[in-house]
Amino acid sequence: MTQSFEQPTVQVQAPLLQLNGITKVLKGQGEPRTILSGVDFTVHPGQSVAILGRSGSGKSTLLSLIGLFDRADEGKYFLHGNDITKLPERRAAALRSAEFGFVFQRFFLLKHLTAAQNVAMALVNGQGWSARRKRKQQVMEALEQVGIAHLAKSKPTRLSGGEQQRVAIARALVRQPRIILADEPTGALDTETGNLVVEVLLNTTRQGCGLVLVTHDHDHARKMGRVMELRDGRFN
């Protein structure tokens, strides 16, 4: 009789995104101001990272560089191991659509659209086209994921702050992104609602999604897998 033994495997997951030596200098009318200076940053699948820091420390700038809203002056940016440091705008837009979900402090919901239409906005962005029925199904799934499917036909003006932020999170989730970037998503909410929103965001990491949360709230930061603090454009 032969016995077979299963060899345990050690799986090293490649990082979702990796920033090496990122520097960003703000060139305005006055003296150039260094916002980020040689920042290294990595996020793995299913990992949640909180970024703490004072106002002006460069948190939001870092997030906008990660989200391809802006370009670094120096350093390298790898997404799934691919160098995307000098990506043209058109491809950056396609990546924003396919890879990232964004949640902001202000919810940025369009008042003339219903909750469902606001969520569908991420699907009607010129990056491919799906049939109306399929779009509707994706939107309802995203709204269910954040627990407000029953408010699909409500306009933002009839929703509370927490509900509006959950619509914004559903909009971020509807394309099933690999990374969620949240810039102070609880900043305009009361503590209880804020906790609820953070729970919803954390849930996404259980499905393998990476989460980068920029916050001032240490309680929320502690709930993340990793906490990093930015000070004067560098991580401590």
Partner: peptide, 8 residues
Amino acid sequence: LRRAVGMS
């Protein structure tokens, strides 16, 4: 916002 969600 539209550009943020992937519009060129």
